[in-house]
Simulated scan of single mutants.
Amino acid sequence: MISVDRDVFIAAMRCVASSVCVVTTDGPAGRHGATVSAFCSVSADPPTVLVCLNMTSKIAQLVRENGVFKVSILPDGAKHIAERFAGMHDSTVADRFEGIETSGALHGITGATILSCTLSQAVEEGSHLVCMGRVQDVTLGANLPLTYLAGRYHPLSREGIAQ
Rank of each mutant, 00 (worst) to 15 (best):
Phe85Pro: 01
Glu83Met: 10
Glu98Pro: 05
Asp137Leu: 00
Cys117His: 11
Gly111Leu: 02
Cys117Val: 01
Ile73Gly: 09
Ile73Arg: 07
Thr102Met: 05
His80Phe: 07
Cys131His: 00
Ile81Trp: 04
Arg134Gln: 13
Leu129Val: 00
Gly133His: 06
Ser116Leu: 03
Ser72Thr: 01
His89Pro: 05
Ala112Cys: 09
Phe85Arg: 08
Gly99Ile: 08
Ile109Cys: 08
Gly108Gln: 08
Gly108His: 01
Phe85Thr: 04
Cys117Trp: 10
Gln136Pro: 07
Ala94Ser: 15
Leu74Thr: 05
Ser103Val: 00
Gln136Asn: 07
Ala78Tyr: 15
Val135Arg: 07
Arg84Thr: 09
Leu106Arg: 09
Glu98His: 13
Gln121Leu: 11
Ala78Trp: 09
His89Cys: 12
Met88Leu: 14
Ser103Gly: 08
Asp76Asn: 14
Arg134Tyr: 11
Ser72Trp: 04
Gln136Ala: 10
Ala112Leu: 02
Glu101Tyr: 03
His107Leu: 05
Ala78Cys: 14
Gly99Phe: 09
Ala78Arg: 11
Ser103Pro: 03
His89Asp: 15
Val123Met: 07
Met132Cys: 10
Asp95Val: 04
Glu83Pro: 05
Pro75Ser: 10
Glu124Asn: 13
Ser127Pro: 01
Gly108Phe: 04
Arg84Asp: 02
Gly111Asn: 06
Thr113Ala: 05
Gln136His: 06
Gly111Cys: 01
Ser116Val: 13
Ser116Trp: 04
Met132Trp: 08
Asp76Val: 11
Phe97Cys: 04
Glu83Ala: 04
Ala122Trp: 03
Pro75Asn: 09
Leu119Cys: 09
Ser91Arg: 14
Ala86Tyr: 02
Ala112Val: 00
Thr92Leu: 15
His107Ser: 12
